[in-house]
Design a protein around this nucleic acid. Structure first.
Length: 115
RNA sequence: CAACCGGGUCGGACAGCCGCGGACGCAGGCCGAAAGGCCGCGGAUGAGGAAAGUCCGGGCUCCACAGGGCAGGGAUAACGGGUAACGCCCGCCGAGGGUGACCUCAGGACAAGUGCAACAGAGAGAUUCUGCCGGCUUUUGCCGGUGAUGGUGAAAAGGUGGGGUAAGAGCCCACCCGGCCCAUGGCAACAUGGGUUUUACGCUGUAAACUCUAUCCCGGAGCAACGCCGUGGAGGAACAUGCGGUUUGCCCGACCGUUCCGAGGAGGCGGCUUGAUCCUGCCAGCAAUGGCAGGGCUAGAUAGAUGGCUGUCAAGACAGAACCCGGCUUACAGGCCCGUGUUGCAUA
RNA sequence: GGAGAUGUACCCAAGUGGCUGAAGGGUGCGGAUUCGAAAUCCGCUAGGCGCCGCAAGGCGUGCGGGGGUUCAAAUCCCUCCAUCUCCG
């Protein structure tokens, strides 16, 4: 990926959880501008969603959504995506639509940036 | 042919496009004095039979070295073997179940001692409420014998039959059951056969109750252990035969700290995968397993790599390594293979 | 990843092999007190699930689930599940 890496530091997760996020039935999205010029993306899947196989599948699908639409995002943001329990059985197209809709509301897409 | 029994093994496949991890390779690019780092390209490679639960056994690592004495604790439990070890596995014995192939069993000792056995019942290892019998009394009743009777209970003096007696009782006899002793077979558990006399073998159940016996173990932790590097920020603490600390308890003993220079700490690197290893063949053994020979290297992440989408077939489960092995337990759709396998039906 | 702890009526909970009652609180209902309530005091029965019954009530099953030992298990043993805590 061109300008993205994974978000690894626990205190940055904690900082993002204190901000007000965007949510719908499938996902919750927190975003915050950073100074690196890169996007740092973290995915949170709680143990309540199921066993390790279920959690791995949800995380991989969410990461795939971001990877396929990386060009639509503005660089320079910290992003945390939390999967809710209905995201376990959601089809891939609905997951994509939910992610892009929440990102648009957070104002981190390139189209939103021009306005 | 059908229904089973036991054992083993696989556990989505193929194609296309876009992606991921760590090794390896490259007269490749950038940075750097160098060591090296980052990027790019390439072809290989990349989750399980349970990776799970963390229930046992080890390896490995560290801590202030763990020594002696007295207490104490834990595990296992027919017998023989296998193993690095085990509470695991194999064989075998006994008991129980099944028509059978076979399956299940914490399966030492209550005849060393102690405890418990509620309620009911006369009585729960010790007895006379009713009954029966004998004697006295001659209404009531009293004394003695008796567990054979009734009822109670999970359990009531080893069982059946006969003799015997006032009535009865292993009191006596025959057979059976169990215990003990002897002989034979077996490494052994045990099996089979015999004996059990003189005076006295007949003993309840419970040890997943205390306990006893036998064998083994017991310092503590666990890779978030532990070692190394360490930005920024802050700058402490203490005075000697004392104080604090180290192991299941106590005593003795031993040791450590009480400092000096950088503990602790965000983060990073190592630990991190060649091992009681896997595959094939032969040999020993009923088997678990062991030996020899040849060949192979087969994940190593660190917010955690195997994915996403499409198509065809199938519809197809349980489920994701985190220091590593050997087991156990639990979850699980379907497919395949093996057996001088079992039973039933049909045909010859 | 590792180490532990706890599960009992709607909630808090005692019970560590035995009889009728799963003790006792809170909660519920009724009464006293009050103009009315809260608090307090007194009494009462019910307590979860299933079946039968018009009702009173009765029977069975229930102490997280399953299995075992025992005459008998909330209690002892094994196993699974759930919840919570701690370790950088």
């Amino acid at each position: 990926m061109k300008f993205s890496c994974s978000l690894k530091l626990n205190h940055i997760f904690q900082r993002l959880y204190r901000t007000s996020g965007q949510a719908d039935g499938l996902l919750v999205l927190y975003a915050r501008r950073n100074r690196t010029g890169m996007n740092r993306v973290g995915i949170t899947v709680s143990k309540k969603l199921g066993h390790a196989v279920v959690r791995n599948r949800v995380r991989r699908r969410i990461r795939e959504v971001y990877r396929l639409h990386e060009d639509a995002f503005c660089p320079g943001w910290d992003i945390v995506v939390v999967a809710r329990s209905r995201a376990v059985d959601a089809p891939f197209a609905k997951l994509t639509a939910s992610f892009l809709n929440l990102a648009g509301r957070a104002g981190i897409l390139k189209g939103e940036d021009r306005q």
